[in-house]
Amino acid sequence: MFEASLAQSAILKKVLDAIKDLLNEANFECTDDGIKVQAMDNSHVSLVSLELRSDGFEKYRCDRNLSMGVNLASMAKIMRCSSNSDKVTIKAQDDNPDKVSFIFESSNQERISDYEMKLMDIDADQLGIPDTEYSCVVKMPSAEFARICKDLNQFGESLVISCSKEGIKFSTSGDLGSANVKLAQTTDADKDDAVTIEMRSPVTLTFACRYLNHFTKATPLSSQVQLSMSDEIPLLVEYRIGDMGCIKYYLAPKIDD
């Protein structure tokens, strides 16, 4: 028996919006600790790692560890049937379920709807990602990061991110011309619009702008985003999901031939 309830479906809708364009399907691994998803996109360039801790749910019960293979487009269709303020309960009866139920309850309890979704068998590769001490860790407003990725995507396919003590610079060039956006570290680190940089050594890396734009679909989840970088290893882009977990995106760098 698996059962997990959230007071408002909005958070689950936002989580799904943050991953459904990158991934077609994924295994939701449910344990007593919570729900985890780790999946690569089809081209093996990026990876999504999602964690929702059990203590962040209004109600959470997981008698046995189970893996639910989910078609994310199907789940998104079902989640769109809920109102943002609905309470949502995810329920699977068996230890090895072939279907999962979503129950939406309006705040006044006058409307209750339930949707059953077929599960899939997904044979997915899992990557072991070691704990890494990155050369640069940048925290910045998530809306600013989304704006930069969107603006610079018009100029070129590749985005160069350079981080030093002075700040972080995003650069691109293409047929139209070139573009640079520099952000300096701000003085007040506690504010939502703060830019903070922890640096061991300066870093310059090149990434496919298209994937960065996909990652920014998580912007509604958090006012801040954290970028962790070291030379010649994948970028880590991390958004917190309130106090209940986080969504991490890893993106393989482009390296000179």
Binding site: H44, V45, D125, L127, G128, I255
Partner: peptide
């Protein structure tokens, strides 16, 4: 032109 790498070049399968 820089070449796009595969994530599996950085992280091993488990």
């Amino acid at each position: 032109t820089p070449i796009q790498n595969d994530l599996q070049e950085f992280y091993a399968l488990v």
